[in-house]
Write a protein that binds this DNA or RNA. Structure first.
Ligand code: ZN
Ligand code: ZN
Ligand code: ZN
Ligand code: ZN
Lengths: 132, 132
DNA sequence: CTTATAAATGTTATATTATTACATAACGTT
DNA sequence: AACGTTATGTAATAATATAACATTTATAAG
């Protein structure tokens, strides 16, 4: 069962926007879109984003400096994330594959380091863009 | 056999600096360090970095906006990269594990998308930092 | 209800990371 | 030499992110 996180006002505004957009959004594009709702400064956006990432409602696409709503209801914490990214249209989707996540969560190398978190980004051309 | 890339003057200065540092370096820290060698503007650094990434001599650590020399002689192109990152001391090392790279290079999900590239970042505490 | 504490907000300024635009120079090939 | 490609130099600016400080709101304990 998911822990219920009661989002604050700004967090809710920003989460709803990202969620409805259906794709990755950049911080300043978010800012532009929420100015009519009274969120006027970058820091207000970044604070909400930080919290939303922390509780796993959104994830950061590091290679794009963008944020996307979690598409995987089981991801309460952003500690094991994988994405597929189209290098042509920039479409992003979250990969939900239990074999992959099991493989990566259990991965260990000879460094003796135990990993508590990972982020994986795959790149290629999506179906649509391959046809063009 | 590795293709020999004849680095240009700026590319060589910047690669040597990153390589000698032994760890990840940020663009503006690189800039600061090469000013005595006549590289005075951010763009000169970014252009060299772009080229070095393209030919696989360095990789970008996306979550840190930093660049590290390739520690894996076989990586001519940055198309399959994996790193372990200590969240305490920020030490980074490139993971060279043939099983992992084989697994990820062959990975495909039900999206029908064929991936040509990936980047994986693992996070945790390195041995030293675990003891503290 | 009151007090204490933590979490969130508002605001201004600033730091950090990266690119655009344009002009010039060096290199590699024929 | 002439050509196309790659690299360089320089100035300006865009895009991304954080510091510092004051205030308010939510949560929980007594
Ligand atoms: Zn998720
Ligand atoms: Zn596409
Ligand atoms: Zn490498
Ligand atoms: Zn460490």
């Amino acid at each position: 069962m998911q822990k219920e996180h009661n989002l604050s006002k700004n967090q809710k505004i920003i989460f709803d926007l990202i969620d409805k957009s259906g794709g990755p959004m950049k911080a300043y594009s978010i800012l532009f879109n929420v100015q009519k709702k009274g969120i006027k400064a970058p820091l207000q956006v970044y604070r909400a984003l930080d919290k939303l990432v922390e509780i796993g409602k959104i994830h950061k696409i590091e290679s794009r400096n963008a944020f996307i709503a979690c598409q995987n209801s089981s991801c309460q914490i952003s500690k094991a994330t994988a994405f597929s990214i189209c290098e042509s249209c920039e479409n992003v989707s979250e990969i939900s594959n239990s074999k992959l996540s099991k493989y990566l969560s259990n991965f260990s190398d000879n460094s003796g380091m135990k990993y508590s978190k990972y982020n994986l980004e795959f790149f290629g051309l999506c179906k649509k863009c391959k046809l063009k």
